[in-house]
C-alpha cells in the first residue's frame, strides 16, 4: 500500500483542489436529498464514468469500494429481510457514490494542494495560538506513515512467526505501540531539523526559539 494519491495529468488532476472540495460537498448534499432510485442509479453510473474518464488507471481505482463491499452486502440483506429492498438499494447507491466521489478527490489531489485548500478552514485555530498549517501537516503525516506503520507491524509479525511458528497475536500490540512511539520521536526530531511544524520565523524575529516544534520543543531545555 502506498499513499493514496495516484500521480497523473488528467483533467481532474489539473482542477484546483478547492473547487474539487466544494463540488464534493455540494454533490454529496444533493445525493443525500435524492430518493428516486433511477436518479440515484444514474448518479452512480455517472460517478463510474468519471473514473473511466481518467483512463484504465482510473477504472482500476474503483476497487476503493472493495473494503466496503462486505458492509454494503450486509446492509442490503438486512433491508431485504425487513422487506424493504428498495431502501437497501438506495442506501447502497448513496454510500457507493459518495465514497467513490470522495476517493476520486483523494486520488487526483496532491497532498500539499489538499493541505493548502484546507488551510482556510483551520484559520480559526490561530486564536488558540496555533499555526493553521499544523493540522494540515498532521494529515500529511498520517498518509505518509500509515504504510510505514504497516511495515513495522509486518516486521514484528514476521519475527514472532520466526520464533513461535504462529501467526501474529494480540501480544504484538504492546511492542507495536512501543515501536510506533519510538518512530514518532525520530520523525519529530527530523521535523524539528527542518524548522518544525510551523516553519521558520522570518529571520531576526523575537520568537526565534518558538520556531522549532516537535522533539526540540517537547524536550526540557536543560538549565
Amino acid at each position: 500500500m502506498m499513499s493514496l494519491y495516484v500521480p497523473g495529468q488528467s483533467w481532474l488532476h489539473r482542477c484546483p483542489a478547492g473547487v474539487k472540495f466544494v463540488l464534493l460537498c455540494v454533490i454529496s448534499a444533493v445525493l443525500l436529498a435524492m430518493h428516486d432510485l433511477w436518479l440515484l442509479g444514474l448518479a452512480f453510473v455517472a460517478t463510474l464514468m468519471l473514473y473511466a474518464s481518467l483512463g484504465p488507471q482510473g477504472v482500476r481505482q474503483v476497487s476503493a469500494l472493495k473494503p466496503l463491499a462486505f458492509l454494503l452486502v450486509i446492509l442490503f440483506l438486512f433491508h431485504l429481510m425487513t422487506g424493504d429492498w428498495q431502501q437497501g438499494l438506495r442506501l447502497i447507491l448513496h454510500l457507493g457514490s459518495m465514497v467513490l466521489l470522495a476517493n476520486l478527490v483523494t486520488i487526483t489531489t496532491r497532498l500539499d494542494d489538499m493541505m493548502a485548500a484546507l488551510r482556510p478552514i483551520f484559520q480559526p485555530i490561530r486564536f488558540l495560538g496555533l499555526s493553521p498549517s499544523v493540522p494540515a501537516l498532521a494529515v500529511a503525516l498520517v498518509i505518509r506513515f500509515v504504510p510505514e506503520l504497516l511495515r513495522v507491524y509486518n516486521a514484528l509479525a514476521e519475527a514472532y512467526r520466526a520464533k513461535t511458528g504462529a501467526r501474529g497475536s494480540y501480544r504484538l500490540i504492546a511492542p507495536f505501540m512501543i515501536q510506533a512511539l519510538a518512530m514518532s520521536e525520530n520523525v519529530a526530531e527530523a521535523l524539528s531539523a527542518r524548522g518544525g511544524a510551523s516553519g521558520f520565523e522570518p529571520a531576526g524575529s523575537a520568537r526565534d526559539k518558538n520556531a522549532v516544534g516537535g522533539a526540540a520543543m517537547k524536550e526540557e531545555i536543560p538549565s
Partner: peptide, 30 residues
C-alpha cells in the same frame, strides 16, 4: 545556540540515519 535555536536548522542541515524516519511527505517532490 540557545539564543538562535529556531534559526539554526536552516543553516545547519541534518541528514538522519534512517530515511524512513526523515521523510515527512508521501511524494518525492513534496
Amino acid at each position: 545556540v540557545g539564543a538562535v535555536r529556531g534559526q539554526l536548522p536552516r543553516h545547519v542541515g541534518f541528514v538522519f540515519q534512517n530515511p524512513d524516519h526523515q521523510a515527512i511527505f508521501p511524494t518525492v517532490e513534496e
